[in-house]
Structure formats: C-alpha cells, structure tokens
C-alpha cells in the first residue's frame, strides 16, 4: 500500500530522500528538531526554516506547537500534514481533558498522535516529537518518526538536520541534566545541524515546559553558538 515510484530521475532532481515525497509546491519544514527531558520538565527546540525545494518560504517559522497546557510538539516533514495533525490532537486532547476533568498525560497525547500518524501513514509525511509535563510522569518525551512508531525516549532528535548531530548529542547527553544544561545542549546541537544541513536554518526556538508553565525563547540568526556568524 506504500507509494509507487517510477524511475523518473528528473522528478528527483534537487530533492533529498526526505523531500522527494512532497507534492510540487508543497512546503516542507526540512528541519532540525529536538527534545530533552530533565527533572521536572522538558526542553523542546527547533530551527525555523520552511522550504519549497531550494526556496526558503519562511525563515522564522514556529515548529513548536502547543497540544495542551503543558504538552507541546515539534513538527517535521510536510508543513501542511503536521499542522493538520497537531490541530486534531489538540482538539481530541481538549475534549479528553473536559471529560476526565484533569490534565491529560503526555503519553495520551503521544498515543493520539501516533494513531493518526500510523493509520494515515500512506498519505502523510510527518515526523513528530511530543514532549511535555504531566502530574503522573513529570517531564516526558515521545518520538513519533515517519511511519507511526511511538517511542518514549530521554531525548529525541528529528528532521533532516538531525543526522548531522547524533554523534554530538550522544557524546554530550547525560542523564539527570538540569534545565539550563539541557537548554545549552539543544542550542549547541541544533546550531551545528543548521550549519551543516541546507534545509535547516534561521533562528533557534526553544520552549521549556514545566509544572509552573511554559517559557519560550529564541536565539537569533546572528547570535548562534556555532555557524557562519561565529566562524
């Protein structure tokens, strides 16, 4: 039931393995996204580039979407698909919160997202990282890659730029990091990915979700910890 590809090499011209699944003109968030758990919450991080082929359609987009009060997700893949997915999950979660009269668990958000991603895998191009805080499990990160698996992880990477930084993150990640250590790690890692990956760039957006609330921040393009600005 998967896509059938003809050996039409022109159709592949200038497209990476990740972007060739997109329709002509479809926007991709050809992306670097990341989430790290720490004691009491999670840090989510994303670059801000949205591209159509080689054209940068938006250089300061927001790939970190809110699903519920303390639950967020990082989007990668087709911009349209991931926006529709987050809209659905946000809708179901708000209904569930009213029915149960309590804050939904991050696990529930991740499982809803996984169900949509898996059941529509033939029509979607979406890799999502769901992360947030809930009263039962605290800070939690779930990775939902293309295909619709759902994997709880202490930290997760996603998007085209992630391949450049697995080694870096594996070397630098430690268990039980503080919030500030986690923030420093995601900024450094995503800056490296943005420097190497053509489809990632712009600014670094971060979000810290804890019991107390959510704190957004960004690092502008000329202040990146690594990359052309610092070379």
């Amino acid at each position: 039931m998967s896509h059938q590809y003809t050996a039409d090499y022109d159709a592949y011209a200038g497209k990476s393995a990740e972007t060739r699944h997109l329709k002509p003109g479809e926007l991709s968030t050809g992306t670097t996204i990341m989430a790290v758990q720490f004691d009491g919450g999670v840090v989510l991080c994303a670059d801000s580039r949205v591209s159509t082929g080689s054209y940068v359609a938006n250089r300061a987009s927001d790939k970190i979407a809110q699903l519920h009060d303390h639950i967020w997700c990082c989007r990668s893949g087709s911009a349209a698909d991931t926006q529709a997915l987050t809209d659905y999950v946000r809708h179901f979660l708000s209904q569930l919160a009213v029915e149960t009269g309590r804050l939904p668990e991050v696990k529930v958000a991740a499982h809803l997202m996984r169900r949509l991603c898996y059941q529509n895998k033939d029509n979607l191009m979406a890799g999502v990282i769901v992360g947030g805080w809930d009263p039962v499990c605290g800070g939690t990160v779930y990775n939902i890659p293309v295909g619709g698996a759902c994997i709880p992880m202490p930290f997760a990477l996603g998007g085209s730029g992630s391949t450049y930084i697995y080694g870096l993150v594996d070397a630098e990640y430690r268990e039980n990091m503080t919030k500030d250590e986690a923030l420093a790690l995601v900024r450094k890692a995503v800056a490296h990915a943005m420097a190497r990956d053509g489809s990632s760039g712009g600014i670094i957006r971060t979000l810290v979700a804890t019991e107390e609330g959510n704190v957004r921040d960004y690092v502008s393009g000329n202040m990146l910890p690594y990359g052309p600005a610092g070379w």
Binding site: T100, R102, E105, K107, V108, A110, H111, L112, R115
Partner: peptide, 11 residues
C-alpha cells in the same frame, strides 16, 4: 487503553 493509559474510574 488505546490512548496508552487506564480509563479513570469516574470516566
């Protein structure tokens, strides 16, 4: 249970 957690008793 499909949502990954047990249903709350009141629900």
């Amino acid at each position: 249970r499909h949502h990954g957690t047990k249903i709350p008793p009141a629900t």
